[in-house]
Simulated scan of single mutants.
Amino acid sequence: MGFPVILQIIGYQNSGKTTVINTLLESLTKMGIRSGVIKHHGHEASLPFNDSGKDTERHRNAGAIVTTVSSAGNTILSMGSALSLEKTIELYKLLDTDCILIEGYKEIQYPRVILCRNKEDEFLIEHAVNPVAIISEENVREKYHLPSFLYQDQNKWMNFLVDHIEKGISKGKRGNYEIL
């Protein structure tokens, strides 16, 4: 099993991260690329479980660190504690993903696409360690030496990102994987 391509999509709230990821997922899925998404939810201390009164809730309350319920159509895994990004990536690797898209986790540096709503968001570009591309409302091409796309030019940034992911998958399958 090769390592999946990891691509992080970062930006401040309402910058279009979820839209970019969903658009990208639709293209990758049509191509047969098995993709997973890891989303950082930085707005609440803990997320609500939707299993009140169910066996999984009782198992967690009894001390299980993780519960999984699986049926013919889906599987739901839940934990009563935070799972680090690194451990989540390892889990996705076990699930044989070709590509992992990470939404958020601005402080953790994986190869990233940076979404900018305005000039104030350029702080994210200036402090990026592994930038792949910029998608912005305003043109920032002259200032930064990175592939830059306007948010409304969806076909351009989509083609670039799909090509980036395909190249990474190809390297991984040849055993020449490096984080792209």
Rank of each mutant, 00 (worst) to 15 (best):
I169V: 14
S27D: 09
F160H: 01
A82D: 09
I179C: 05
E86R: 10
I6D: 05
K30H: 07
S78I: 14
K30A: 11
L94N: 03
K156R: 06
I125T: 10
R174G: 10
V113P: 00
Y144N: 02
I89P: 03
P147K: 02
A82W: 05
G42T: 12
L146M: 09
P131Y: 14
I179Y: 07
I165H: 07
L24K: 06
K119Q: 06
S46A: 15
V37T: 13
D51M: 09
I165Y: 11
H59E: 08
I165V: 12
R141S: 08
T67L: 12
H164Y: 08
M79I: 08
K87V: 04
E44K: 14
I100H: 01
D121P: 01
W157T: 00
K87P: 00
T88L: 09
C116R: 00
E86S: 04
L25F: 15
G175F: 02
W157F: 02
D121K: 01
E26Q: 14
C116M: 01
T68R: 11
E107W: 09
E86M: 06
E138Y: 09
G11T: 03
R174N: 06
P111V: 02
N50L: 13
E107R: 06
G73C: 13
A64W: 09
K143R: 15
I9W: 10
L115K: 00
S46G: 11
G63C: 10
I33A: 06
V129Y: 14
E122R: 03
K54S: 04
E178A: 01
H127E: 13
R174E: 08
V132I: 15
I108T: 01
Y151D: 01
W157L: 01
I65M: 12
L101R: 02
I102T: 06
L95N: 01
E138M: 10
I165W: 10
N118V: 00
E44G: 05
L91V: 14
K93G: 06
I38A: 09
Q8T: 13
L25G: 11
I169T: 05
T68D: 08
G32Y: 01
S170R: 13
Y144G: 03
